[in-house]
Structures are given as structure tokens and as C-alpha cells.
Design a protein around this nucleic acid. Sequence first.
DNA 1: CACTTGACCTGTCCGC
DNA 2: TGCGGACAGGTCAAGT
Length: 326
Amino acid sequence: MPELPEVETVRRGLFRLVVGKQIESVRTIDSPKSFPNDLASVEQFMIGATITDVRRRAKVLLIDLSTEYTLVIHLKMTGQLVFIGHQPKPSETASRRASVEYASADTRAADVSSDVADDLPELRFGAGHPNDSLIGELPDRSTRVEITFSDKSHLFFNDQRKFGWIKLFPTLEVPNIDFMQRVGPEPLEDSFTSTEFIPRIRRRQNTTIKAAILDQTVLAGVGNIYADESLWGAKIHPATRVRDVTDEQLALLLKEIKYVMNLSIEKGGSTDRNYVNAEGKRGSYIDFARVFRQEGQPCPRCGRVIEKTRVAGRGTHICPTCQVIQ
DNA sequence: CACTTGACCTGTCCGC
DNA sequence: TGCGGACAGGTCAAGT
């Protein structure tokens, strides 16, 4: 679900909200897959620890603790991190429902960047959870982990499909994790240019260009949304074989990947449904999507109706006029 | 090695 | 209204 822009948006929000907080307790529910560490190490290295940093690599979140341990978190398809802050009015403690401001991916960037957001005592952060638009108390049936801080605020890890996970590693070992070893460069780094991108993607000459940019070992962070969006931007049909794509097209494709991801971060990522937070703000990257989930709508460039098909085993959106297989 | 497909899960939506 | 099947933004482990 969450791709790089969504994870980055969550990172920014969490950084602002949880750095400096001290962990008081950790509760796991249905944990074998969602949080496979044994309870003893969790107790030893989490309880009493203070959060020192929130980082991101590819689609993985890294929450550093003062114990020199790090929570490594992959949200996969339906994972969600929800922060519920301390209720400032002691009288309203009957229900958390009443104390929560809901900020979806639609509005998160605005919340992070606006001065108003600093005045909000509570925020909910998540990404892509199908229940984003449902107001409910937490924990709910998708909650896998609940972290309670010493100020009684909470961080919930919800994950409907249980694909996501949290794992606790010594901070120094994080770079040695298999995923970290294999994952490709960060596409938004200024230093990542077509000089590096082109040879990396050409390792996958025989597959489709969409499969190639979804390959996390080629470059980090592209998922189905931004694959379709960037390919449309570069006027490349997703099913085109890499060998049939010119270097000029690849250079343009990288430019489009950077563009759509930066735009999405600016918009606070995407969610799969409309959502309005407590301030009535909305507007997400999905509102700016040119092809993703736009089947039946006119192509913003040429007016031809956008079609949905299947490439690399994934739902794929194209403009049949702008994007032709080479 | 490169590439494709199915599996992991739960929930929702769509057609009958 | 119920039921079966397809599908969902990600990655792995298998298979060819």
C-alpha cells in the first residue's frame, strides 16, 4: 500500500510527534507475524527507552531508541501507524474517540507543514488503511501492536492483512538486514541521476519497464501508483520491454518518478478513499493522479479514455494514445 | 542468473 | 440477501 511518499509522510509526522517520548509499555496482539521478536528482548530494549529519531529507507520506517536498538517497520499493503496524543482536557477521558483528530494521508503534509498543526493536541497518522475513513476507537480488530508512552500517548500499529511487520534490531545491524543490503538507491536523492539509473534498470532488459521500476533492487520506493503515473508522464507503455526503451526515455522516466513522488510528498501522499480531517481539509495525491484509478476518465493530455489492464501481475492504468508499446 | 507466478491475509466489491 | 470470485498501493519463495 504505502509507497515511498506515504512512508515519508508518516515519517515526518512521527518525527514531530514521538521523538523524545519514553516508552512505558508495549502490547502485542496476534504478534507472531506482525512483531516476531521475543517478549524478553522487547522488554529489555524497549521499555523505558526514549525515541531518538525516525528515519526512512525505501518503504521502511526506522524508529531509533536510546538503547541503540531500532524498530524496523514495513507497512506492506495495509499497515498503518496511528498516533493518538494525550488528551489535554482531563474531563474528556471517557472515550478516546472524542479526543482524536483524524488526519489521513490526504491531509498529513498540510498538517506537518502548517503552523496550525502544532496547536493540534492529537493527530492520527496512518496510510492506506481501508478503515481510514471510519472513525473508531483503538485498538480495533486490525491493531497488532500498541506502544504506550510515559505521557499516556499511544502509537498503534494496525494492519488488516498482516503482511506488515515490526522487528527490533540493534541499530548498528540495521544496514546488514537482507532487505537493506539488496534495496536500490533512493530515487529522490539529488545524487541519483540517469547516469546511475539507466545501467541499473538495464539489468532487467528482458522484462517490462513496469516490472523493472517496481523492482526494489533497481531503485527504492516505486509502487503501483507511482509506476503508472510516471510511465504516463514519460509516455511509455508499461508493457514495453526494457530493451526497447531508449536512454532518452529512461532519463525522462526518472525525471517523472522524481516529479510524481515529490508532488505526492507535498500533497501528503495518497489514500484510496476520500477523506476529510477534523479541519475539513482534504486533497491528496490521488486527486492529482493522471491515470491511476482514472479508468473511464479522459487522459489529461489527449482526452482519450484511460484504460485499465494488467502488466507485471498488477492492475495497470494507461492512455492508449499517449502510451504505445515500442 | 533473469524472470514469472503464486502465496501471504483480510476485506470489499461486483455479478449472478 | 447470499455467495463465489476477483481484486487491493508489497514483497518473498518457489517455479521455469
